[in-house]
Every structure is written in structure tokens, then in C-alpha cells.
């Protein structure tokens, strides 16, 4: 497993509360479920507005998982179970 098998791009709005929450939640989730195999890139939409538009992110905070597959989630990521399911990280795999 390479270090950045799971790559995320987190769109935040400065130090706004939901953005801080989203970053905290994502980091915690990665440390628990994807230790040593994730990479998080943070984009502040207040600084780099173009990047948000290009990714069609109209609301911040938002997180895009770029690899291994494309998934985009919005909000503070407070519900870990839902987030994991949406990212496909807790699929029941009969072969596991």
C-alpha cells in the first residue's frame, strides 16, 4: 500500500466553524480507518475560489475523494458511519 492510496481534497472556508469541524473529522477518520495510506490536500475557497468552481463545489466545506474512486461529500462530516459508507470504506466484503 502506497502512502497516498486514498487521496482527499478538502475545500474549506478560512477558519469558519464547519470547515474546522470537517477537517478535524476527516483527519480523525483517516487516522482510524486509513492509517498511513492517505493524503489530504486542503484548499481554502476564500483564497482559491477558481479551484472550487472548477470542481463544481458550490458549498464549503466539501471533501472530494479523488482516489481510489471519485466521491464528493458536503458538510462537516459529523456522522462518521454515513461518511464511511459514502466513501465506500466499510463495505461488507464477503472475502475480507
Amino acid at each position: 500500500m502506497s502512502a497516498d492510496e486514498y487521496r482527499f481534497r478538502l475545500f474549506i472556508a478560512g477558519n469558519e466553524p464547519n470547515s474546522l469541524l470537517a477537517e478535524q473529522n476527516l483527519r480523525a477518520l483517516c487516522l482510524t480507518y486509513l492509517p498511513g495510506c492517505h493524503h489530504i490536500e486542503i484548499i481554502d475557497v476564500l483564497q482559491d475560489f477558481e479551484a472550487a468552481l472548477q470542481a463544481m463545489i458550490m458549498v464549503a466545506p466539501a471533501v472530494m475523494m479523488l482516489a481510489p474512486r471519485a466521491v464528493t461529500l458536503f458538510g462537516a462530516l459529523n456522522d462518521t458511519a454515513k461518511t464511511l459508507a459514502a466513501l465506500g470504506l466499510k463495505q461488507a466484503n464477503p472475502h475480507d
Binding site: 469558519e16 463544481m56 458536503f74
Partner: peptide
């Protein structure tokens, strides 16, 4: 799903900023 996700975020008050053609705007 994307539209639903953004809408839900706004409705739940989890959004900090919204983007328009002119630039980002803080929700508060």
C-alpha cells in the same frame, strides 16, 4: 447526489461559504 448533498448541507446549517459566479461568500 451532488445537488442533494449541497442542499442538505445548507439546510442543516453545515455550510460556511457558498460560491457564486462573482466569488465566495461567507454564510454568516
Amino acid at each position: 447526489e451532488r445537488a442533494e448533498g449541497m442542499l442538505r448541507t445548507l439546510e442543516h446549517g453545515e455550510a460556511d461559504a457558498v460560491m457564486s459566479r462573482d466569488g465566495p461568500g461567507l454564510v454568516r
